[in-house]
Amino acid sequence: MLEELVRAIADMEEELALQLVRDFVSGGGDPQQVLDACRDAMDLVGKRFEAGEYFLPELMLAGDLLEQISAIVKPLLVGGPQASVKTAGTVLIGTVHGDLHDIGKNIVVFMLEVSGYNVIDLGIDVPVEDFVDKVRELKPPVLALSGFLTLAFDSMKETIDALSDAGLRDSLKIMIGGGQVDEAVRSYTNADAFGLNAMDAVSLCRQWLAA
């Protein structure tokens, strides 16, 4: 059954996936196993996205489907999700100041989370000081700055400059993305890398946080 569930989620068969989950838990199945199956399915979704078979709509649907499945199984978990699930590392993320866009950022958050990262999302229009304070407090290995508008180039640069001034830059990997961000913007802002999509963000984290 769980294999069938993995396939149904990965193939975007929403109704079937939800029915399988309901049947499984009403039959006394372990809800944690459902969540594990979701993770396996999302691995497949991520691979198909990287291979150019899946696109943004599939990520959106998978995200929404996972929320629905979580709403069914999480109340049944004894003592909440198993604490043994190890996080692959912490990523601090936010849309830089002046920019209210969050579609791209939210997709990145979702793909990082399903890839096992502990993501702390500061939201949109995040002031420079908030990034600096949070980096100082949490010491995350990775910071992701998002921005859709061209004004974000300067906001990203200001944010990264402020982290350098605060002595927090050296221990931090910084990725930027969104809108018209490219290599010239990476170089201008002094970020470590830029990404064109959510899977680029996952790949960069894997590269940077590999044990």
Binding site: T150, F153, Q180, V181, D182, E183, A184, V185, Y188
Partner: peptide, 9 residues
């Protein structure tokens, strides 16, 4: 012409 070039180049 990329926005990045017009803004930062």
């Amino acid at each position: 012409v990329p926005a990045s070039m017009l803004n930062t180049g």
